[in-house]
Design a protein around this nucleic acid. Structure first.
Lengths: 99, 99
DNA sequence: AATATATATCGGTTTTTTCCGATATCCCAA
DNA sequence: TTGGGATATCGGAAAAAACCGATATATATT
């Protein structure tokens, strides 16, 4: 886990917001027909809610993924993103012990 | 506590390093004559160790202070900085609950 | 009052980040 | 096999961050 990369990923308003939305998909996104929220939420829904362009959101999700904070699953034409809760748990430990 | 401001303060290698050094001043800095490390470590010592200019370090310490991660005490011509451990504890809670 | 030392602030250059539009890729359906 | 929708990638303009040197301010000493 790269501390610096994680903190950089977290130091943007939109990316923080996305992570918070993903904490409770049922609450924050309209129903998804096929998969529920098992795999997370697809890029398009996040993009709509965030009100930024598709390319920007795609990049932001990559950034979060490189930092290990989210995971993605491709299903057909859709890519679903969900939080990686283990990474958040690890992060609190980093702050408690290393920082 | 402003999440975003905290994460921005943490997303710089030198500032992270400073926080780690301040975790154990006895270990990371030469003895200070008058005050021990009660009040923390003065700017000059941090600057020397970091190998950046005085102005840069002064700014970085302000950044950390604005984020609430350190506190400063002026004693004569010196300003001592030390960690605000309460802020770190609060940060782990933010990550657990809000993030 | 003059000088010296420690820190803060200011102005500027270079690098990084933020965001966009355009285009490429990938997958599905007809 | 072609067209359309979803996502990724690329190139770039504008804003922010990372530094620096010069200068200002505060305190202590003489």
């Amino acid at each position: 886990m790269d501390q610096l990369e994680i903190f950089k990923a977290l130091s943007n308003k939109s990316r923080l917001q996305i992570l918070q939305w993903l904490k409770d998909p049922e609450l924050n996104f309209p129903e998804q027909e096929v998969y529920g929220f098992e795999n997370g939420v697809c890029v398009g829904q996040i993009q709509q809610k965030a009100g930024l362009t598709q390319s920007t959101i795609s990049e932001y999700l990559s950034t979060l993924q490189r930092a290990g904070l989210v995971e993605s699953t491709r299903v057909g034409q859709w890519t679903y993103y969900k939080r990686n809760e283990a990474a958040f748990a690890a992060l609190t430990k980093i702050i408690e012990k290393e920082l």
